[in-house]
């Protein structure tokens, strides 16, 4: 069994009286591609925010490559190798697409204040390195033609790809995608699926996808988790999960199931 990139045990988050996520667990190994599905309001995004440090868990632990980072701020988790995108795209709108991706390289290669002000050779080397790596990622994600465009002016689908490119620039071990296909048309979705596959297979990055589009998840992932009302109700291969009565209940409710069986 390969080393676990992300290990979460018993993650819970309570908002006031509402238990948004209750005892969520995950073991994301190197090179895996896992899907997280569930009906609206099931707690998928909350689980995501817990895994990336955006929210602090009320209970539970998060280990990144064996290191306990429970309650750490997002940039600490990013440094440890967890990158993410957002359901409602969050780009640095006023910067160019290339600059957005270069921001992702700051953490790993950016120069300190002293080096920057003193204009040491190390500063110019790091600037070149960041630019070259960002340009490579821009090319790999098919954004070359848009590199110098203002990120806020790009189409929705392109913005999603810039966000993924920016996440890749942080040189992650695990990439967490929050509804990457939301609002995309079928051809854009197809391109996105290919991109996610390439990231997973060619670049060796583990991926966790939260998605609404069932077909996308079932076609893409080898392992699927199902969340309902904050709890994990099923986990397994797409085929296993689709046959699981708890999943059918989560999506369709019990009465319909009874009708369907009748």
């Amino acid at each position: 069994m390969t080393e676990a990139i992300i290990e979460a045990h018993g993650l819970s988050r309570i908002f006031g009286g509402l238990v948004a996520v209750d005892g969520y667990g995950l073991r994301l190994a190197g090179g895996e591609l896992v899907g997280l599905i569930g009906p609206n309001g099931a707690g998928k995004t909350t689980a995501f925010n817990l895994l990336t440090g955006v929210l602090k868990p009320s209970a539970g632990r998060i280990l990144i490559r064996g290191q306990d980072l429970t309650g750490a701020r997002p940039h600490v988790l990013a440094r440890a190798g967890v990158a993410r995108t957002f359901q409602n795209i969050r780009l640095f709108s006023d910067l160019s697409a290339l600059e957005n991706v270069m921001c992702g390289g700051h953490m790993r290669h950016g120069s300190s204040l002293i080096k920057t002000l003193a204009q040491l050779p190390a500063f110019w080397r790091s600037e070149k390195l960041i630019a070259r790596r960002a340009a490579e990622i821009i090319d790999r994600t098919g954004l070359s033609a848009l590199a110098y465009r203002r990120a806020g002016d790009l189409s929705y689908g392109d913005q999603r790809r810039v966000e993924i490119a920016r996440a890749l620039a942080t040189e992650p071990a695990a990439l967490l995608l929050d509804e990457p296909a939301a609002g995309l048309n079928p051809s854009e979705t197809q391109k996105l699926v290919e991109l996610i596959r390439r990231i997973n297979e060619d670049m060796g990055v583990s991926v966790l996808v939260v998605e609404h589009d069932m077909r996308l998840v079932m076609g893409l992932c080898r392992r699927v988790q199902v969340l309902n009302r904050g709890k994990l109700v099923a986990e397994g291969t797409p085929a296993e999960v689709q046959a699981d009565p708890a999943v059918i209940e989560a999506y369709l409710g019990t009465r319909r199931k009874a009708l369907a069986n009748a």
């Binding site: 990336t52 997002p74 940039h75 990013a78 969050r90 640095f92 910067l95 921001c103």
Partner: peptide
């Protein structure tokens, strides 16, 4: 500038 444009996203890319 990333911090100015979107603080949460900046945090999540390791800033």
């Amino acid at each position: 500038m990333a911090t100015r444009e979107n603080e949460l996203a900046a945090e999540c890319v390791g800033i």
